[in-house]
Structures are given as structure tokens and as C-alpha cells.
Write a protein that binds this DNA or RNA. Structure first.
Length: 205
DNA sequence: ACCATGATCCGCT
DNA sequence: GCGGATCATGGTT
């Protein structure tokens, strides 16, 4: 590997991108690309579905205050908050706003762009054909995205302005954005804080 | 007891 | 194909 950071690759979004209001950041994350640099190669995908989780929001992990589990949500914007759920899955969030404000954007779905073989191996094991059906199911859900990108608890707290995992703008502009209640929550269903790119095949539903 | 989930199975269209 | 039921499985409170 070279010594220059992000050599030949899209440069990370600046810290200021993440310090804005959480719902604004959520919408603006649609169409951006998320990258992970590994020894065996690069993984890249386009963010196509997100959900905002705010303070004073009963659906947010931060609602009942700061705990060891949700601590990273209270860090400065631009970090990755990864949590374990349902005894077997990880989900990844982009931390937003300034330090001590516990807000974040859940990455719910990604369109795979580079690294189909690695993603397929992680999701379905070796010797799986990369057919249409397989590729559609690689990253069309929050835990599926984490599995395909190899994001586990070890990535909790990762700085998105580093060289491990980062988010960049490649100039793509979504044609139309949809909004809806967030998925899988009990409280806070009245907020329309799920955003997605209309018509994209990897949106989870 | 409760989950910001996903895979599978089953009955239907 | 597709929608609904069911279950796997363990951290958190």
C-alpha cells in the first residue's frame, strides 16, 4: 500500500458535513458512497436508504441517556456507531452533531459498487454464484450491509475521516427521495425520518 | 422482556 | 412471486 491517504480514491467528506442537524445529514447521505479499505482490496457502495435518530426521540438508543453501549452516539459527528442486536446482527450508524449530543443516522441499505466477490463470500460463503438474485440481496438491509462490509463491534468508534472506513461524494445526485416512518421501532412512528432513493433496487422495502 | 434484523417456510395469487 | 408467521440468538436494562 502507498503512503498517501486515499490515493486514487474519492476523498472523505469533511467534518463539517456531519456537524449539521441530523435529519439534514440523513437526507444528504443519500447517494454518497461508503468505502472500506481492506488488505485484500476495496469495498464500495452507494448509500440508498437511511434513518435519523435524534435526542428526545423515544426510538433512539440515546433516549435514556449515555451508556457504555451508546457512548459513541455522543461523540463528535463523523464517527461510526456500531451496535449488536437480535443476538446475531450488527448495524452501523453515522454519528452526527457536536460532541455530547447523542444523534446518528442508521445506514439501512447500500447499492454495491465494488467488491462483489468479497461481499458475496461474507454474506453467503464461498462457491456462491454472483447471479442477479444474489447481488440484489448483498446489502439491502442494515445488518446485511454490515455483514457484506465486515463491519462488527470492532469498528465501533471508527473515525470516518480516517483511512479505514469513510464516506465520499462522487457527484451522483438522487433523482427522487422518498420518506416514511422508520422501520422496526415501537415508539416514534409518527416521525417520517426514514429516507430512501426512489426506485433503487437495494432499498429494503 | 425487549429488541433500529434476516432467513425460511407456508399458503396464496 | 409475495405477504405473513415464526424462529434463531445474545446483549442490555
Amino acid at each position: 500500500m502507498g503512503t498517501k491517504k486515499h490515493e486514487g480514491m474519492p476523498y472523505p467528506l469533511p467534518r463539517s458535513f456531519y456537524l449539521r442537524p441530523t435529519v439534514t445529514v440523513a437526507k444528504d447521505l443519500l447517494g454518497k458512497i461508503i468505502l472500506r479499505q481492506e488488505r485484500r482490496g476495496i469495498l464500495m457502495g452507494r448509500i440508498v436508504e437511511v434513518e435519523a435518530y435524534c435526542m428526545n426521540d423515544p426510538a433512539s438508543h440515546s433516549f435514556r441517556g449515555r451508556t457504555p453501549r451508546n457512548d459513541v452516539m455522543f461523540w463528535q459527528g463523523g464517527h461510526l456507531y456500531v451496535y449488536f442486536t437480535y443476538g446475531m446482527h450488527f448495524c452501523a450508524n453515522v454519528v452526527t452533531s457536536v460532541a455530547d449530543v447523542g444523534e446518528a443516522v442508521l445506514i439501512r441499505a447500500v447499492e454495491p459498487l465494488i467488491g462483489f466477490e468479497v461481499m458475496t463470500q461474507r454474506r453467503f460463503g464461498a462457491n456462491r454464484t454472483l447471479d442477479h438474485r444474489t447481488i440484489l440481496h448483498l446489502t439491502n438491509g442494515p445488518a446485511k450491509f454490515c455483514e457484506a462490509f465486515g463491519i462488527t463491534k470492532k469498528k465501533n468508534g471508527t473515525d470516518l475521516l480516517g483511512t479505514d472506513i469513510w464516506i465520499a461524494d462522487d457527484g451522483y445526485v438522487p433523482s427522487a427521495i422518498g420518506k416514511s416512518p422508520r422501520i422496526g421501532i415501537r415508539d416514534g412512528r409518527e416521525k417520517l425520518w426514514r429516507f430512501y432513493i426512489k426506485g433503487n433496487l437495494w432499498v429494503s422495502r
